[in-house]
Design a protein around this nucleic acid. Structure first.
Lengths: 198, 198
DNA sequence: TATTATAGTGAACGAAAGGTCACCTGTCAA
DNA sequence: TTGACAGGTGACCTTTCGTTCACTATAATA
């Protein structure tokens, strides 16, 4: 049947939920944005909540597939400058990719209402990043690039400020460029402080 | 007249808006939680949006009165341990005070919808804290307690991770104790790294 | 005491919400 | 050719929303 309407509904839902929240979104507008009428949506989902659940499942699955398992860990940089470069690549992607932005906003808006959104939010905003950089920093310490220290603590100290500025970009997109520059400055400050040469 | 109903409405609105968001809150429930009937609220506010505006004005005024001006800056600690102590005092207050928690949640939920909420959110979550600790760290550097460095950068590196864990407490209150311990560990890590004795 | 403003009630209203249903239409398999 | 079905339409239903209004009780004021 070549039917991608279901996927298009989920895409539109992500867009509207991330902007106006679940409660602030209505099926009429959502349908209209797809060029169909409200009842058409109910051919694909049995309720508004079903759309929400499907969207959340999709996000959870996506996160699991891309960041959930150890095999998706990025390579350990072989220099301090490599850490900065890798960081900036990831940051530039994450603050410019519309779908990623909307995912973060959605999790921000629904974290207090839905337990699964809450858990995914914590992964997205906190533990996912620290886990990833714990691994990276442990590797860099082994290579003698970073001062020996608790890699988890360093990862937390490194990723939390970056995460804060990513949130700023979501909140005030016009500050994105400035925030990226700030992240790079922070990253360089970090390698200066924790690099083994200091 | 002894009429505090207006204030009670605002308090209830803070509670409901911070839990369910503006769109997810209805006047019936809000009135009921105060033991009055829906139309009674309209004796004090002409619309739901008027309640929102009054609440936001109150929050903005409160923030301005308590954190807005330089005279409210905390004293500069006279030791590294003093920094940790002061930090933990502030943190324990901010993660346990119901009103402060609800304020943060509300700003989190409405930051994408309302420009003034957005600006206050940035102050609350980012610039307010960094500004405050920029002043503190500059003072501590003058006293020779901290290594000479850019105090604004240090303030950012110090407050952003703490802020991230405060957000975690808002999202998952059952992790509050653990998060507080993590903040203390991070604070001690920070003074170890940046203290002038290192 | 008479008056008047205040705070609250309860019924009602129109709009908008989520959801249902009978119906239409094009596609594909038997 | 026919029948089944997926996908879409438009009218309609019920509930809930924010809001209004006539009315009442109360307490201060003139």
């Amino acid at each position: 049947m070549a039917n991608d309407t279901k996927e298009r509904i989920l895409a539109a839902a992500l867009e509207m939920f991330s902007q106006n929240g679940y409660a602030g979104t209505n099926i009429r507008e959502l349908s209209a944005s797809l060029g169909l009428v409200k009842s058409g949506v109910y051919k694909h989902f049995e309720s508004k909540e079903a759309i929400w659940n499907a969207l959340l499942n999709q996000m959870i699955a996506y996160y699991g597939a891309h960041f959930g398992s150890p095999e998706h860990l990025p390579p350990v940089p072989d220099s301090l400058e490599g850490l900065v470069t890798m960081t900036m690549q990831m940051v530039k992607f994450t603050v410019h990719d519309e779908k990623v932005i909307m995912t973060r906003k959605l999790l921000t808006l629904e974290q207090f209402r839905d337990v699964r959104a809450r858990e995914l939010a914590t992964k997205h905003f906190l533990t996912g990043l620290t886990d990833m950089f714990t691994h990276i920093f442990a590797g860099m310490m082994e290579q003698g690039l970073l001062r020996r220290d608790d890699p988890a603590m360093l990862a937390f100290a490194y990723t939390a400020p970056i995460s804060a500025l990513i949130h700023l970009c979501d909140r005030e997109p016009e500050k994105t460029e400035k925030a990226i520059a700030q992240i790079e400055a922070f990253s360089r400050h970090f390698v200066k402080v924790y690099g083994s040469l200091s």
